[in-house]
Amino acid sequence: MNALREILALLRLYSQQFKTTFASMVQYRISLFIWMISQILEPLVYLIVWSTVSNSSGGSVGGYTARGFAAYYLVLMLVNQFTYTWIMWEYEYRVRQGLLSFALLKPVHPIHSDISDNLSSKIITLPILMFVAAGLALIFKPTAAFNWWAGLVFIPALILAFLVRFLIEWTLALAAFWTTRVNAINQVYFILMLFLAGQIAPLTLFPNWLQIVADILPFRWMLGFPVELLLGRLSHAQALLGLAAQFAWVIISLVLIRVIWRAGVRVYSAVGA
């Protein structure tokens, strides 16, 4: 009974937070739009670069034709948008301004409002991005070997990718408790993401040892894996193994969050306290 009541309360919290964020997103729609430019431009640039390479080396590079790259990067653009978070910048600001004190006073864990914040902004940005991706698809004419089972497995893979990325980046954001130079940490993180999640190139284009590193670390499972899955580039076994790895990373990051959050709150002292 108690558990049920808690879940209901949490749902109410989510829907309320949802309305608030939605209203503020509509208010700041121009910033949202401008911020989306870089979300679109980065994969677009790599799409163009790799298509050029593919065209100039006999029509195919590492199993990708120019149109194959188009499919890869357009799906990557959408998956990236779906799993994206900006929580590291948010936390740095909260800790620096002492705003976290209010969040700590509330009777629920602050991660809940962050999750619903993140989801509600995507309800606005995703349709716009899908529209853009459709337009780009007309220009670059992507092709992929789509199949039904991969399409079905893609949905849980996408949700797990979001969870892994959200939990990992939320943990990383807690670095703000210990240092004010979060930017340098974030930069390292983004570079790892660039290479090991499949942003700079599909991971199969990398040397073998780097692919093994990417399999062990969480980055691939936040972005590259669902993309390759949807494009029909993975076998059944690879898909299952991927889901298992995603699951493992969700659990690892949940444990990490518990430990680091407790330690962090103990270190935190608001300005003026």
Binding site: V53, S56, S57, I191, L194, A201
Partner: peptide
């Protein structure tokens, strides 16, 4: 990062455009 990116690309081609 910029140099590593170039290295990846030029491991597949001799010239880019």
């Amino acid at each position: 990062t910029a140099l590593a990116g170039l290295a990846v690309i030029f491991s597949y081609t001799q010239s880019l455009g």
